[in-house]
């Protein structure tokens, strides 16, 4: 279950955290010890499907087809997540985003189970509308409001990886600038000053909008997010919400592949040697 990564001090601390989280899967690891190749043991992904989700299949394409991991589509009325390791709340317009983005989705049976899943310290990833749902559900602080220029924006933007000592980001280099697609109309991160301070103090900001050279300023901030925030985690680090779409930057056929490392990081954290199908190209 030890991921093949280089150790240095901050990462050591992270692995300590990771270890505490992994203890929860201890029984699974033990039961798998008898198998020949533990590295091919699978991480079970669950992708929540609300009416109006439209990036659900894109996520499954990455986890199931590119990374060869079992992936179950979880209908919003389904509340059983018992066998799932990593829950992904995908992008789209859940329930039409009526009222407010993500505001209705949070009341679904599936989301109640996702909250429980998160409480148990298991991994939850919210992408785009999924991030909005996680903030509405209170799993992450703050809110996502209309973009600064009031237009929907679809583009590829540079992001600075702010910390690499969490499973999500462990396959990136410290302060690495990566390029990930965005596609949202309401992606401007907002939180009050105290919340922002707490986020920064706890190092909960994982991704920040920046220029190709790593400078975060108004020009390199596509949507007016406070503190240039593109993605944050909860204090425990097991819940990540981000407006950019890592699943859209995972397949070499489509160009950039900076997003796949996020999924590979999770596989490594759960003891699966990521042998993505794309490595065989």
């Amino acid at each position: 279950m030890i991921a093949p990564i280089l150790w240095n001090k901050p990462e050591f601390e992270a692995l300590t955290l990771g270890f505490l989280l992994l203890v929860k899967w201890h029984h699974r690891e033990v039961s798998n010890l008898g198998r020949k190749t533990i590295v091919t043991e699978a991480v079970k992904f669950g992708v929540i499907v609300f009416p109006g989700s439209n990036c659900d299949r894109d996520v499954a394409y990455v986890t199931r087809d590119l990374l060869n991991q079992p992936t179950r589509m979880v209908w919003h009325e389904d509340s059983d997540l018992s066998e799932i390791d990593v829950v992904v709340v995908p992008g789209g317009f859940s329930y039409g985003d009526y009222l407010r983005c993500g505001a209705i989705a949070r009341f679904s049976p599936a989301m109640r189970s996702v909250m429980e899943h998160a409480k148990q310290g298991k991994y939850v990833l919210g992408i785009c509308n999924g991030f909005q749902v996680l903030t509405e559900a209170g799993l992450l602080p703050g809110a996502l409001v209309r973009n600064r220029d009031l237009h929907f924006i679809c583009d590829r933007v540079p992001l600075k990886v702010e910390r690499t000592d969490l499973p999500w980001t462990q396959h990136y280099q410290a302060s690495e600038v990566i390029t990930i697609p965005i596609a949202h109309g309401e992606g401007s991160y907002y939180a009050d000053a105290d919340t922002l301070k707490a986020l920064e103090d706890n190092r909960q900001v994982l991704f920040r909008y920046c220029s190709p050279t790593g400078i975060s300023d108004p020009d390199s901030n596509p949507n007016g997010s406070l503190n240039h925030i593109a993605g944050i985690c909860n204090p425990e680090g097991n819940v990540l919400g981000m407006m950019p779409h890592p699943e859209r930057a995972s397949d070499p056929v489509l160009g950039g592949t900076d997003g796949i490392k996020l999924f590979q990081g999770i596989l490594a954290a759960l003891g699966v040697g990521a042998e993505p199908a794309i490595a065989t190209f």
């Binding site: 299949r57 894109d58 929907f152 679809c154 397949d251 489509l254 160009g255």
Partner: peptide, 16 residues
Amino acid sequence: VYRQYDHQVQNNTVML
């Protein structure tokens, strides 16, 4: 114009 359109959803857009 096209920045306002989601041109990448479905993960199949080979040419932007």
